[in-house]
């Protein structure tokens, strides 16, 4: 019972706490993933509630009372109806969760059509830094990712050495950066601000320090930054 309470309290903290990145998404992919998280949490909450209720009830009701030590309880082998019900009901719950899971998986995998004018960014992970190449502008930035707000982004991920994993929790889920391969991650940032980015796959000694800042800006500021970067490269 105590643990059920702990669970409810934590759930309340969860919903009210904006410092939990995944529950406070600022990107399209992150929003869809949050929807699935909440749906599955709700369904699983029902399961937990049923199991814990039966658990507590049976434990209180059927504990051995003094004087019963030598009694023989009636032995029941099973009950067809009950047993079928806990095959069918979970099956329904799974279908309810599986359908939106499938839909979202395909949706996130869908390539952008050209009329959406996605911004392509080539992301390369290497021990222990991230570099971001913007082919549209011909500039490269290291450990700092700038994104224009509300424009679809297509990250082309790869690695120069071992496997890394590219993750900006507030914008959306992660995707691995594999050496010798190219993976694509698509999302759109919906709000300006600075978000933490990290490497999620163990990649060596400084794995924990392989972080980057993601700065989402409005169109004018983003263009300014592009110009500055271009000037910098010319000077350099």
């Amino acid at each position: 019972m105590k643990r059920v309470l702990t669970f409810i309290v934590t759930a309340c903290i969860l919903s009210g706490c904006s410092s939990i990145a995944v529950l406070n998404p600022k990107g399209t992919a992150g929003e869809k993933q949050l929807d699935l998280l909440l749906l599955s949490l709700l369904l699983m909450g029902i399961v937990l509630a049923v199991v814990f209720t039966l658990f507590v009830r049976f434990l209180i009701k059927y504990r051995e009372k003094p004087g019963e030590e030598n009694e023989f309880p009636i032995q029941t082998a099973g009950n067809k109806k009950l047993e079928i019900s806990w095959i069918v009901v979970p099956f329904i719950i799974i279908i309810v969760l599986a359908i939106p899971t499938f839909a979202t998986t395909y949706e996130l995998d869908e390539p952008y059509t050209n009329d959406k004018k996605p911004l392509i960014i080539e992301v390369t992970g290497e021990q222990f830094q991230w570099s971001f190449y913007y082919p549209e502008y011909g500039i490269t930035s290291t450990d700092e990712l700038r994104l224009p707000v509300n424009r679809p982004i297509s990250f082309k991920l790869t690695s120069n050495d071992v496997i890394h994993s590219f993750w900006i929790p507030q914008l959306g889920g992660k995707r691995d950066a594999l050496p010798g391969k190219e993976n694509t991650l698509r999302l759109k940032a919906l709000e300006t601000g600075t978000y933490d980015g990290k490497c999620a796959e163990l990649c060596g000694a400084e794995h924990a320090l392989m972080t980057f800042d993601t700065i989402v800006e409005n169109k004018t500021n983003f263009s300014k930054w592009i110009e500055n970067m271009k000037d910098g490269e010319k000077d350099g």
Binding site: Q33, L41, M44, I94
Partner: peptide
């Protein structure tokens, strides 16, 4: 185990797993 089991089902939901994975 029931608590671990339900998070297991949550992890099975692919797009949400993109968030949970390796965290």
């Amino acid at each position: 185990f029931v608590m671990g089991g339900v998070t297991g089902v949550m992890l099975g939901s692919v797009p949400a797993d993109y968030q949970y994975h390796d965290s």
